[in-house]
Every structure is written in C-alpha cells, then in structure tokens.
Design a protein around this nucleic acid. Structure first.
Lengths: 122, 122
DNA sequence: CTGTATCCTCGAAGATACTG
DNA sequence: CAGTATCTTCGAGGATACAG
C-alpha cells in the first residue's frame, strides 16, 4: 500500500524541510555569515517576524542553524549556518541558478498557456 | 519597503514553484521518461489522484511537463518532462543527494534537540 | 531589539462519489 | 483509467499587540 521509491526515503525529508515559502530563502540569507534577526527580516523582505522566528527555530531544531544571543542591551541575536546547514547552500544555489537561467522561459510558458483554454490541447 | 535581494528575483519563482509537498517529488517521478497517471500515483505513494492532477496541471501550465492523451479505450494519458522541465532534474537530484548524505545527521540533531527544553540553550 | 501570544484568513491536500 | 466536483480539515502565514 505504501510507497515505492520515495515514501520513506531521506529525500522526502529534505524536500519537506525546504518545501515551504521561506525556508530556502532564509538559508540563502544566512549563506554569507552570521546575521541578526531584524537584519535577516529586512534582507529577505516580506516575511513577518513571527514566521521568521518560527522558521529559524525549526532550522535550529534540525541542526542547520545556530542561534547566538548576546547578553547585551539592547538584545542582539545572531543566526548562522551550522556546518551541516552550510552543506545545503550548494543545492539551493543550484535552484537559484536554474531560476536565473530558466525563469524567463517559465514565465513565457505561463503566458502562452494562459491564453489557451485549459483542456483544449492539440 | 520592499525587499532587498530576493523579493522579485527569479529565484523566488523557482522556490515557490517547487515549495509544496509534491511538486519536486512528481518531477522526480517523471525523470526516467513518460509515465501514466495511475502509474505515477503508485510510484509516488501517498498522493491523492486529485492532488496529483492538480500538480501536473500546474507543471504543464509552467511548461515543465507535457501531457499526452491517447484516444484509446480505456483511456491512457502519459506525462513527461519537457526539455525545460528536464533541466530541473539536476537541481532536484542535488537535493536528494544531500538528503542521502545528510538525512541521518538531521534526524540526529532533531533527536538531540528535542531532549532539551526549547530555550534553555547553553 | 527580539520574541511571544492571539486572532484570522486562505489555500493545500485528503476523502469520497461521480462522469467520460 | 483518467479526471472532476464537493466537502472538510488543517496548518502556514499574515497582522497586531504585548513582554523581556
């Protein structure tokens, strides 16, 4: 009943780890070194503080990100990739590069296909 | 107000294209050549027909997948990657390879971190 | 500055039954 | 076999206000 080739395979884990609106973007935002919470929020743009925190928490939990809170006033908290997290940057870069190269083509296809009624295919 | 480095960049497009529970898996399932609807469902496992169809439709719309319906009885419909869609396989493979190599480490981290109360960090 | 709590919306995804 | 329609559930993510 269960699944053939991917059901419990680790690949699924990774996909689910990244497959939300922000995770990949957050990781990308951390790829140049430690960043503060607010800084990261601005860098990314469009993400709410709550969701950013949630995302970072999950990444921390999964061992991909380290959180370092400085006992200062005002508070300062920096996040950075763990060595494990850093290894995910390459795959993510592949995706962004793909986008840079093929993003236009996707938009074109979208544009063309939207002019045709859904199932009037040739 | 808007965003710094990724807001409208094509990378976001790709992430959003893949960032759902099934898209990457479906693409992966098509990476070996044309597959029939039901075949694909079984191959993936755990996906409902409805969601599979929806996913394929969106991929078709974005120019990543081709749908070929044969006028037979019983009906046969095959899906396959377009050349554009095929270029996405490499990045996706990167992810699955990452998972194969680091999936365990992630689970370990998860395991360790779950024994500590959330914010009692050292 | 950082983080949490609460409320709310919206769409993804599942179950099921039905059509071509 | 392929696909659609309907109903429902569930959680991600946004807004806001507040706390340390």
């Amino acid at each position: 009943m269960e699944s053939p080739f991917l059901a419990d395979c680790p690949a699924r884990l990774t996909v689910e780890l990244i497959a939300d609106k922000w995770t990949a973007v957050v990781l990308y935002g951390l790829s140049d070194g430690p960043v503060r919470h607010g800084e990261l929020a601005e860098l990314i743009g469009g993400i709410s503080r709550k969701v950013l925190t949630q995302t970072l928490r999950r990444l921390e939990l999964h061992g991909l990100v380290n959180r370092h809170a400085y006992a200062e006033v005002p508070p300062r908290v920096e996040y950075e990739l763990t060595p494990l997290g850093a290894t995910l940057i390459d795959p993510i870069h592949m995706l962004t590069e793909w986008a840079r190269e093929n993003g236009e083509a996707v938009l074109d296809a979208l544009d063309v296909n939207e002019r045709k009624p859904p199932r009037a295919a040739a």
